[in-house]
Design a binder for these strands. Structure first.
Lengths: 366, 366
DNA sequence: ATGAAAGCGCTAACAA
DNA sequence: TTGTTAGCGCTTTCAT
């Protein structure tokens, strides 16, 4: 009945709105309206159209729709390494949240600045309505300088808004982070309260603002109370490098009795090295604190004291910001800081005579 | 210099190929050709165009390009829960692989059949050139029956090719899996060789072919050698339910001295429960085997014996198949089974007098 | 090698 | 409410 050409060879011609219109005996526009939320169509017409669409197996073409409306409905997401559960789970939550609003997620995997320089233009070609950066490290500043983008950019878990471009134009980027400095001061207090005296820090990537802010709060608070961070190692936010960092730190003399890692993956590496390779007891010989509160942190094998970033709230804030930025292109992107929380588990010692209300809290995702 | 309208208000008009053409003093088509690999343009013209594009900040519109060429360059990916590291890492590898071919990944997060029924049509609206399913459970069969799709579908890590639709039409779906039955027989042999006598199994989702095939190989081989699986619990492929399954299994009498879990996440749960809650030693009191070989399996805290799925090879095979299917729409999708490998670590006992060449192998990703 | 012209499939402004 | 008419920005014959 339909005029399909050459059955089963070549790229079969897809059903168009015109086909549906003809079968339903209405105009193209009627079809368009029948399929658009809140357009003015009679129930009768809509029914005819829907029926025709059904029998023909019609799927409207969102590419064309996006072109015509000058809004694709696609959001770009540049994501860092997904072997970091924190980022992986964040990606899932974000894409689900976007789905609720009928938006599609186009992802680009990259973990270097150079990747962004490729990702951004290629995403812009697809006319994404906006773009997220999911990483405790990546920032679009470098790339955005060289490409005129004109789309909202929002960074999650990071806050590199540093950018003044070559042309002197500021590159405005929204950012959602936590109170890294403040919470890291609390970490210092916790460790101090547990009687620790020799402090070490494992940074993520040296250039990452998250890593630096966490270090600053930790170092500053320790200094205020008369202590210094005696050793700093680099773990690049991943487990493998965390292993090496932990080995270096634990072999030093005096051996640190407190290690704060800029994320959980590295903290887990410390735990594994301390126990399996150095035969140390945690927290007796060395106390360990991580950051993020990934699922593994709550598992019995680790039961890691860590800082929980409010993942769902951060995503929610990011999406709200993005949506606002899309609606009002002249709006200035903001930097939003949410509060993080210390989750005390068994890798730190209890301060004498203090209660720990959040102790033994379960994992973040139920 | 450029005719931008109303500076800084409303959706600023984007630069088009025509703008570039005018500035370069050539035609629209020249611009198109200059930007297309392998078109016939003089170096001179191309240079002029590139320069004009640069100064104008031109980004070609891939949506329109896709519409005109009848090929979007977008691949849909329906992904299961990303808190399963195996799926998360697979997603990263897949999207990177796609990027190499200049393809974009549009992801849809879902973990239920009902999600697929929504995901598929919405992906088809964006004219994805094909769609992957990343899950040890999800299959597009149910949804594909009701929607005419006409795009290649490839399932990774699963093999539900069962589908004969209501209309009697077969829904052809490509699939990349491993030799679940065979390798699970090997698992049975390993456990038997270690002296285990009371066997239990933790299934993923009861309907998942992966889970069923693994169970079948395990049960069959055990039976051949005179043993039965005394208990089966359901862990739904996730850690939390794995915890409950492990508790049930380990509380039973006689207590199993061998537990094979359909994936690593559940096996880790067994390890945590056995040690922390039941005070058992692994592998002395109970041997544990998982499936997938996620990063955590290789970490010292777990050091789990497991079956490694050749992730990178599977993705590669999947992409090859997808690309072939896109080029030749009449090609029949195949089901490809790759070989998996047993990685012996410390949660199983050594068979007397046998060497274990793959013992203590490192994690899959370096 | 280049330009002119014809679409690709849809939405939106306008009439009716 | 409905149909008609213009585009949206690009690629691609077809001439030249």
């Amino acid at each position: 009945m339909s005029g399909s050409q050459r059955p089963g060879s070549g790229p079969r011609r897809r059903v168009t709105a015109l086909d549906v219109a003809r079968l339903a005996g209405v105009s193209r526009s009627a079809v368009s309206r029948a399929l658009t939320e809140g357009a003015s169509v009679s129930d009768e017409t809509r029914a005819k159209v829907l029926k025709a669409a059904e029998t023909l197996g019609y799927h409207r073409n969102a590419l064309v729709r996006g072109m015509v409306r000058q809004r694709s409905g696609i959001i770009g997401i540049v994501a860092g390494r997904l072997d970091n559960p924190f980022i992986a789970v964040a990606l899932e939550i974000l894409s689900r949240r976007l789905q609720e609003d009928g938006l599609k997620s186009m992802i680009y995997s990259g973990d270097a600045e150079s990747d962004i320089a490729v990702a951004l233009p290629s995403l812009v070609e697809y006319r994404v309505d906006g773009c997220f950066f999911l990483s405790n490290d990546l920032s679009p500043q470098g790339a955005a300088k060289y490409t005129r983008l004109d789309i909202p950019l929002v960074v999650l878990f990071n806050s590199d808004m540093a950018g003044i471009s070559d042309h002197g134009d500021e590159v405005p980027v929204g950012a959602i982070t936590v109170d890294n400095v403040e919470i890291s001061r609390t970490v210092a207090d916790l460790l101090l309260g547990g009687g620790c005296r020799h402090f070490a820090y494992i940074e993520g990537l040296p250039r990452a603002t998250t890593s630096r802010e966490r270090q600053r709060g930790y170092v500053e608070r320790l200094a205020e109370r008369g202590f210094a961070v005696e050793a700093v190692a680099t773990g690049n936010f991943n487990y493998a490098d965390g292993l090496a960092a932990a080995r270096g730190l634990l072999a030093a003399r005096p051996r640190p009795d407190a290690i704060f890692a800029a994320n959980d993956l590295m903290a887990l590496a410390v735990l594994d090295v301390a126990r399996a390779e150095f035969g140390l007891s945690v927290p007796e010989d060395v106390a360990v604190v991580g950051f993020d509160d990934i699922g593994a942190a709550a598992q019995a094998a680790y039961d890691l004291t860590t800082v929980r970033q409010p993942l769902a709230d951060m995503v929610e804030a990011g999406v709200d910001l993005m949506l606002a930025l899309i609606e009002e292109p002249d709006r200035r992107p903001e930097e939003i800081r949410l509060r993080s929380h210390l989750i005390e588990r068994s890798t730190t010692r209890q301060p004498y005579g203090m209660s720990a209300p959040e102790r033994a809290a379960g994992p973040q995702e139920a």
